[in-house]
């Protein structure tokens, strides 16, 4: 009876070994397959266009918005009449573009901002610039900071960053202000001198921003 019964446990032990090993291999393959892009598992990226851009990456969500505002820059003593509802008018109307970068309130972690505001010059821009009749300035609101304005000839750019990591729910702004003065540096009447540029496109200002999870030591 003892010899007759001995082979049965051996068959049972082989099956018992193969089954869990197979399960583990399947689980490992499944896990790897589910992750995808094994080389980039540490960073998740996403981009989107305005308006109302909300980018989520794991527990970090950033919102970038823009606001365009036509602002009065003075009066030309009745010598210039504004006819359009938009656009720069020498001595009378300028433009302020404000970019707001926010770390969403539901983000899990603080984020450090880095980015660039850039614009390619159009022919109208170059014409105004050639006559010394375009004024550009940039400023940062609380929480943001900007670097020096760089003029590469064909375009403008300046860097943007946060002064400290933006906590979830925090935001900061950077603004670009454009205007055409009423009178040029050589005394020329701008409204007359740049008449040919009326209704021309000047530039598209683009902010490209990245919010990076702040290291724990920075996030405090």
């Amino acid at each position: 009876m003892g010899r007759h019964a001995a082979p049965a446990p051996v068959r049972l032990r082989t099956a018992a070994v193969l089954l869990p090993v197979g399960s583990a291999v399947v689980a490992l393959v499944a896990a790897v397959a589910l992750i995808g892009g094994p080389a980039t598992i540490a960073y998740l990226n996403a981009t989107a266009e305005q308006p109302a851009q909300t980018i989520s990456a794991g527990g970090l969500t950033m919102t970038v918005t823009k606001a365009e505002e036509w602002v009065s820059t003075g009066a030309a003593a009745g010598s210039t009449v504004v006819k359009s509802t938009a656009g720069l008018v020498p001595g009378i109307r300028g433009q302020k573009i404000t970019f707001t970068i926010a770390n969403a309130a539901d983000s899990a972690v603080p984020g450090t901002l880095s980015g660039t505001v850039s614009a390619a010059k159009t022919a109208a821009w170059s014409s105004l610039e050639g006559q010394g009749l375009i004024q550009t300035s940039a400023a940062a609101g609380a929480g943001c900071q900007i670097g020096p304005l760089s003029d590469a000839g064909s375009g403008l750019s300046f860097p943007v960053s946060s002064t400290e990591p933006l906590a979830p729910g925090d935001s900061c702004t950077v603004a670009v202000t454009l205007s055409i003065p009423a009178t040029g540096s050589s005394g020329q009447d701008a409204a007359t001198a740049v008449k040919e540029t009326r209704l021309s496109a000047l530039a598209d200002f683009q902010l490209a921003a990245t919010l990076t999870q702040a290291p724990r030591s920075e996030a405090g």
Binding site: A42, Y43, L44, N45, A46, T47, E49, Q50, Q53, I55, S56, G58, G59, L60, M62, T63, V64, T65, K66, A67, E68, A76, S79, V81, V82, K83, S84, A86, G87, L88, V89, P90, I92, Q95, I97, F99, I101, V109, G111, A119, L128, L178, D189, A191, T192, K195, R198, L199, A201, D204, F205, Q206, L207, A208, A209, T210, L211, T212, Q213, P215
Partner: peptide, 19 residues
């Protein structure tokens, strides 16, 4: 680290006037 990226674009133009 987690990161998020985004862009926003605003256009500028010359207006019209009589002078």
């Amino acid at each position: 680290y987690l990161t998020a990226q985004g862009t926003a674009t605003a256009s500028s133009s010359v207006g019209d006037w009589c002078t």
